Amino acid sequence: MSRIGASALSVVLAAVLALAVRTDALLLVAAVIVVVQGLLASAPSPADARGRSIPTPRSAATMSAGIVSCAFALHPRLLLGADGSTVGLEGFISNGVFAGVLLGVAVGVFVAIVSQMLRRDDRRHLVLSTSSAVSLALFASLASAWIGATRSASGPDVVTIAAVGLAASLLIWMIPIDRYVCAAAAITVGAVASAAAALVVGGLPTWVFGLAIGSGAALFAILGQVLARAWSQGRVHASAGWGFPGAMAIAMAGPIVYLGGQLITVSM
């Protein structure tokens, strides 16, 4: 049941992203990504060997990292700094995403450390608690890659093609059969759906590009759900059972979509 709920959520989020990018609603794309980051922040705390939850302050670190990375993806010119300062062109080439991810993770690490210092217990399992918060901060930062893909050349086409492949693959992933067979079928269907979408949009991307980005987005979306379910360790309440895995699928696919947008930019 958790696979169905998580996949359905991912499909809805992908559909909203595709709709937003086709209507040039960049702020709506950013809003969807913030929702994804909020769902990531709701991830369950890690458990010890006895299955007991370890106190892990994670929401502040996750959301601060996500918001910082979103800000730089939306406004790459923030990388220029104050008037009179000089930087290279890397910030513009990467649409602010690579630098934004690094800065977002840096902020997330700082906030995670401060949150650990504010704990009023005996700070049991400090390393595991801190590493979990930092990992969530990284995932939240990666989700902002969807914004960078939107801002690239042929961004609406790239995001639409990737979203179609991701949604199609996760519809197959809902089927309750052997997970290896299901994963292979889901990736294949995702690649074919993206190739068909590339032919329909009629822009710069070709069907070969659709196959590549569709299979990549499908693969990492499924890996995101598998990782999230392993992280949740059988806990089935809303945030762990479907909210967190559904958001992880979107976050993990983000860098693949962004890379596709950059490949289109280079080919131009």
Rank of each mutant, 00 (worst) to 15 (best):
Ser129Cys: 08
Gly104Pro: 02
Asp83Asn: 10
Phe110Glu: 03
Pro57Ile: 01
Gln116Val: 04
Ala82Leu: 12
Asn95Thr: 08
Ala61Gln: 02
Cys70Asp: 13
Gly91Tyr: 01
Val134Glu: 07
Gly66Leu: 00
Leu126Ser: 05
Ala60Trp: 04
Val127Tyr: 11
Ala99Phe: 11
Asn95Cys: 02
Arg58Leu: 10
Arg58His: 00
His125Ser: 13
Pro76Thr: 07
Val111Gln: 03
Ala82Phe: 13
Ala60His: 05
Ala133Ile: 04
Leu128Met: 11
Asp83His: 11
Ser94His: 12
Asp121Tyr: 11
Pro76Asn: 01
Arg120Asp: 13
Val134Asp: 06
Phe98His: 11
Phe72His: 08
Thr62Cys: 09
Val111Cys: 01
Pro76Glu: 01
Glu90Ala: 15
Arg58Lys: 14
Arg77Gly: 10
Leu118Arg: 14
Ser85Leu: 15
Gly88Val: 05
Pro76Val: 10
Val97Glu: 10
Gly84Glu: 09
Val134Leu: 06
Ile67Gly: 05
Ser69Gly: 04
Asn95Gly: 14
Gly84Trp: 09
Asp83Arg: 14
Gln116Tyr: 06
Ala106Ile: 02
Arg124Tyr: 14
Leu78Ser: 01
Ser59Trp: 11
Val109Leu: 00
Ala99Trp: 13
Ser64Thr: 10
Ser94Glu: 12
Val109Asp: 00
Gly88Ile: 03
Leu118Glu: 13
Ala65Asn: 01
Val109Gln: 00
Arg120Cys: 07
Met63Lys: 03
Asp121Phe: 12
Leu103Ser: 09
Gly91Cys: 07
Val107Glu: 02
Val111His: 02
Val111Tyr: 06
Ser85Ala: 11
Arg77Ala: 15
Ala71Pro: 04
Arg119Pro: 08
Ala61Asp: 03
Gly81Arg: 02
Ala71Ile: 12
Ile67Val: 15
